[in-house]
Design a binder for these strands. Structure first.
Lengths: 256, 256
DNA sequence: CAGTGGTCTAGACCACTAG
DNA sequence: TAGTGGTCTAGACCACTGT
């Protein structure tokens, strides 16, 4: 009783809410403007806070909202187009100032990365092209317009950078730059790339100023040199704020 | 009280749950195997069902689980790699049997698409290159290994297919094929592509066998011909089951 | 039909941010 | 310290699937 049950289609409340809110965002709000808090919005729409939050989550997923704990919910700017095109045979460092090397250390890569590094080795031999030796993990950060948009781990087997000399103790970021410089000496023959949805690991989330588990676009790149996989990059892009572009002709310019 | 509060770091329960479940999936379950139902799992871990669901949602987002109402929760197979590489200057139809034309009708595209279609027109003129005329919307479905992985709307301004003759009433799928055939007559000069996260619209969701709002990867492609945007494709890929590949050298073969 | 996941409620407390 | 979003609970009912 009380509920008029106006439609035969029981469209979920949060879905309808999302639509209504989305239209309101278009017509009544400016980018950066702060919305009423969740408790008030829920009351205003006559729903529980959890239901309201379900709608907000979707809008945030679509990049229309930005929520920050302790602050509030704001209207997000349009997603920034981030170029991830397979720039004609270039190493990840070459002439790209949007990436900033942060750290580097020898470490054991996850098995998924190991499989990529060994991808060209004969299945029968079992063993390894270069996965047995140490692998340098270079951590880099990508920023666009002052905003951190991606965190990357670049896995470089020591066998790919034979010319590298490692002095005893050296700052991680200096080592990172040296590994990248050595890498550029190899002839780059091609690259593989894949994009999939993931959720941010705790460390990546912190660098991207998001909570752990935040939705991210994971770009995996395999750099090929000498018939082998010379390096593997796993880059984690904020899915809420980024649109990955692969243009022959640059941006898609969705906004203006 | 009763809670031993074992850690100084108040890691969220659902996050810890997700980790535990994820490890269990690796070691104790087979692909396709069905998990205990949510009420039992929640009881077993001593949490509320909503909390358990938060963990399951994340695992589903990462493509590790598949949940179907009325059926249960199953262990998902590894994501399938779907090639979306900018195949050397090919129209969306050419020699690709993974796409199946479904329907076609003249319709008004969303404003975002209109902006793309007019992208090359002079900003000052305001008006339009060809957005004023009718626009054909071809709907297609992409299947891989018997599974629907993507739903596409291909926007083709009538001015891009001047040779097209439209008989009075014609089946939508036949019209779709004719539009595509006409399109192939144009010289394709290049294409722009962008990938971003979205949530499935109701109609796409139905064709992808998902609920509305399900996370999807939206691939927007702009086909360039004669210095103009001859067509725009908006393809919606299931984010849970798909990994988009852009290989020079084919798949990344994460699995085996 | 019984059993599943999906939606929704009305609370409570916590972690974080900013004044 | 006040106010925000984030987490969590213990229920309830609904929509869908298979038998």
């Amino acid at each position: 009783m009380g509920t008029t049950q106006l439609e035969t289609v029981p469209e979920p409340k949060y879905w309808h809410l999302k639509t209504v809110l989305g239209e309101a965002l278009d017509s009544e709000f400016q980018v950066g403007e702060i919305l009423p808090n969740e408790r008030e919005l829920a009351a205003r729409f006559g729903v529980a806070r959890a239901t309201l939050r379900q709608a907000l989550e979707q809008l945030e997923l679509e990049g229309r909202l930005q929520r920050r704990r302790g602050v509030g919910t704001t209207v997000a700017p349009p997603r920034v187009g981030v170029d991830v095109s397979t720039a004609r045979h270039r190493w990840p460092a070459a002439g790209d100032d949007s990436w900033q090397a942060v750290d580097c250390a020898a470490a054991e890569p996850p098995v998924a990365v190991l499989r990529l590094l060994d991808a060209e080795s004969d299945a029968g031999t079992g063993g390894a092209a270069h996965a047995d030796g140490p692998v340098y993990v270079v951590r880099r950060l990508r920023a666009t317009q002052g905003q951190a948009v991606a965190a990357e781990q670049l896995y470089v087997p020591a066998s790919s950078v034979p010319g590298l000399v490692v002095p005893g103790t050296q700052s991680g970021t200096a080592l990172a730059r040296r590994v990248l410089r050595e890498l550029e000496r190899l002839p780059l023959e091609g690259q593989d790339r894949a994009v999939e949805l993931g959720s941010a690991r705790a460390d990546d989330a912190k660098e991207l100023d998001r909570l752990p588990g935040a939705p991210v676009l994971v770009v995996t790149t395999r750099y090929l040199s000498g018939g082998r996989t010379a390096a593997v990059s796993v880059a984690t892009y904020r899915a809420d704020t980024c649109r990955l572009t692969f243009g022959d002709a640059g941006d898609l310019r969705i906004a203006s």
